[in-house]
Computed example of a mutant assay.
Amino acid sequence: MTDETVAESGDDRDEGEKGIELTPEQTETLRSSIASIQRSLAPQIKLPTFTLPESAFKNVIAISGIVEAQQALMADAIRPILDAQAAWRNQISGGIAESLASASKITSMLAEQQSAWLRSLGPTIAAMRAAFYPPNLRAIQGLKFAEVNTVVMVDGIPLYGLPRTATADALIRADGASERRRILGRRWRTISADCRTVVMGCESQAVAPYVPFAVAALEALDEGHTAAAQALAGSLVDAILNAYFGKDRYKYTPDRNGKRTKDAYDEFSIRQFTAFAPMWQAYQQFFVTDGDKVPTTFSRNATAHTVSPRQFNRRNAVQGLMLACSLLYRLDEEAASVEADA
C-alpha cells in the first residue's frame, strides 16, 4: 500500500467523525425513505374481516319466527291426536282388564267342556281297549303291549281269553319266566276251570268238532292224568293250527336252521298277535336224531316225539291246554263274526 493510499483513507475517517449537517427538510425526507424500505421488507399478512350484512340478521329473525309459528301450529294440530291417544290408552287398559276377565271365564268354560268331553270319551276309550285286548285283559290297569309280548311271545304262555284277569295280571307282573312257571303250577285248578268256561262258551260250527277233545283233555288234567292231558293237548293244538293256517303255519314257526324270523307276526293285529304268538315257542325245533336236549317248557314237537319227565309234567300240560283252549276261543270269535255276517 502506498503512502498516498494511506493518506486518502485517513482523510475519509476524519471527515466521518466530524458528522454531516442536514436541514430539517432533508431529515424528514430521510425518515420517510427508511420507513418505506422497512415496510417493503416486512411480510404482507392481512387478516380478513367478515361482516354479516344487516339483511342477514333480518332473515334470521324472520326464519326464527316462522319456525316458532310452525311449532305452535304443529302442537295445535297434534294435540287432538295426543288427547285421543290418552283416551285410547285408558280404554285399552280397561279393555285388557275386561279381556283378562273374559279369558278367565272362557278358560273355565273350556275346562268344564274338556272335562265333560273326557267323561263322554270314557266309553270310546273302553271300546278302543276292547279292540286291542281280549276281555280278560281289559281291566288290567296300565297294561302295556310290551308286557303282553313278553308273556305270549317270549315265554309262550297264552293270555287270549284266559286265564281270568287276576291270574293274567299275576303272570304279566311276575318277575321272569321262572315265576310265571310257578304260577302255572300253583294255580292250575283255576286255570283249568277258566279253560273249561271258555271252551264251553264256543258256539260256532267251525269250532264245535274240537270242543269235546278239549273237554276230555281238561278232565284228564283235573283227574291227575297229566301226561294224557298233555299228549291230547299237543295233538289238539297241531290240528287247530293246521286247519286254520294250512301250509302258511310254517311262516309262524321256527325252521330247522334257525334262520326264520318273526316278521310274519307283524301282519297281525294286536288281538291276533296275542292269540297266536305262543305258537312260536310251542313249535321250537326239536329233533331226537340230532341229539337235541329235551325242553322243559311246553313243546308240541317234544310232546309228540319223546317221552320224558322233563317234558311231561303238570305245568306243561296246563300250558298246552291253555294254548289249545285259547286258540279255540279266538277261532270261535272269528267264525261267529263270519256266520253273523252271512
Results as ranks from 00 to 15, higher is better:
R189L: 13
P163I: 08
R181M: 07
A174F: 05
P212A: 14
P209A: 11
R182F: 04
C202E: 03
R189V: 14
L184M: 08
T197A: 13
R181D: 07
L184S: 04
V199I: 15
R180Y: 03
A206L: 09
G161C: 04
R187L: 08
A208F: 08
A170V: 00
D194H: 03
T197W: 03
T167G: 01
T197V: 12
G176D: 07
R164P: 02
A170G: 12
R189P: 02
L162H: 01
P209M: 11
P212D: 12
F213K: 15
Y210T: 02
G185Y: 02
P163G: 06
E203H: 05
Y160W: 08
A177D: 10
I191H: 00
F213I: 14
R196D: 15
V207Q: 00
A170W: 00
D169H: 09
G185V: 02
R180C: 03
R180E: 03
A168Q: 06
V198N: 03
R181F: 05
A166M: 10
V198W: 00
A168N: 06
R186C: 00
E203G: 07
T165K: 04
I172A: 09
S178Q: 10
P212Y: 13
G161P: 00
D175P: 05
I172Y: 09
G176P: 07
T167Q: 04
A166G: 11
A166V: 11
I191D: 01
T165R: 07
F213M: 15
S192Y: 02
P212H: 14
R181I: 07
L184T: 05
V198A: 15
G161T: 06
V199L: 15
F213T: 15
Y210D: 15
M200Q: 14
S192C: 13
A166K: 10
I172C: 08
A174L: 05
D175I: 12
V199M: 15
V199C: 15
G201A: 13
C202S: 12
A168F: 05
